[in-house]
Write a protein that binds this DNA or RNA. Structure first.
Lengths: 125, 125
DNA sequence: GTATGATTTAAAGTTGACTCCAAGTTAGGT
DNA sequence: ACCTAACTTGGAGTCAACTTTAAATCATAC
C-alpha cells in the first residue's frame, strides 16, 4: 500500500506519516524502488499511533513503547507500566474535561436563557 | 492579592499569569505602586482560564471569549455559540480518550496476564 | 518517450503555549 | 538605611509536533 492510500485511509497527512516513520512512532517501512510499501502490520501501528495521539499521548510515549516492543519479551512489564501510567493520565484528562463541560454547560444554559428572555442571570461562579 | 499568592492558590506559575494578562486571557490587573493587585473578580478569570485550559481549550478561544464579554450584551449570542462549539470539541475529545482507554485496557490486561502466566496472547487489534 | 503526477530526502520553517533572562523597581524586616 | 526577597518589563528562548520547501526520482497514461 502506498503512502497516499494510507494517508487517506487514516486521515493522516503523508508528511506526518513520513515524520512518524522518521522518529519511530511507526516502523521503518520497506521500500520498493525507493517507494514505501505499507504492510497491514505497518497499518496497525499507524492506527495505534492515531488512536493514542488523538487522545493526547505524546509522540515520545509512543516511541518509547515501540522501542520496548522491539527489544522483546523482557520488556513486557515495563510496557505494562508505561501503558498504565499513560492510562492514568488519560483518566485525569477526562476528569478535567468533565469539569470544563460542567462549567460550559452552566454558562451556555444561562446564555440561552438570556437569548430567549432577555435576562442574563449570573452566579459568576 | 499579589501575584505570588494567586500563583500558589491556583498552581499556575507567575510567568504564566503575566503571560495570560499580556495576551488577554485574564483582565489587565490594576497596579499599586507598579505591583499587580489581583481582585477576586480577577481570580475568577484565572480560575476560568485554568479550568478551560486544563481541558484543552486553546488560549486563543479564551481570549476571543473574553473579547466578546468586554464588548457587552450585544455579543451574548456569539459567546453562546463560541462556548457551544468548544463544548462540542470537548465531547469529541472525550470520545477519543475513551477509545484510547479501551485500547489501553485491552493491552494492559494482556500484559498483566503475560506477567502472571508467562503467556502473551495477542489479538494484535 | 514524454508530460504529468506521485513519491523521495534533508533541512528549514511554523505554531501554540509557555518559560527564561536581564536589568531594573519595590517591599519588608532589622 | 540597608539587605534581601519579591516584583516589574521587554524580549528572547524553548519545546512538541508537525508542516513546508526544494530538488530529485519514479510511475503511468497517452
Amino acid at each position: 500500500m502506498k503512502i497516499a492510500e494510507v494517508s487517506k485511509r487514516y486521515g493522516i497527512p503523508q508528511e506526518t506519516l513520513r515524520y512518524y516513520e522518521r522518529v519511530n512512532v511507526i516502523p521503518k517501512i520497506a521500500r520498493e524502488n525507493g517507494i514505501r510499501n505499507f504492510t497491514e502490520d505497518d497499518c496497525i501501528w499507524v492506527q495505534f499511533a492515531k488512536c493514542l495521539r488523538a487522545a493526547g499521548l505524546s509522540v515520545e510515549a509512543i516511541i518509547e513503547y515501540r522501542r520496548l516492543t522491539l527489544i522483546g519479551d523482557s520488556t513486557i512489564e515495563a510496557r505494562c507500566e508505561l501503558l498504565k501510567s499513560e492510562r492514568e493520565k488519560l483518566i485525569d484528562q477526562k476528569r478535567s474535561i468533565d469539569e470544563a463541560l460542567e462549567l460550559l454547560n452552566y454558562k451556555v444554559s444561562r446564555y440561552e436563557e438570556a437569548v430567549k428572555t432577555g435576562v442574563l442571570s449570573w452566579d459568576k461562579k
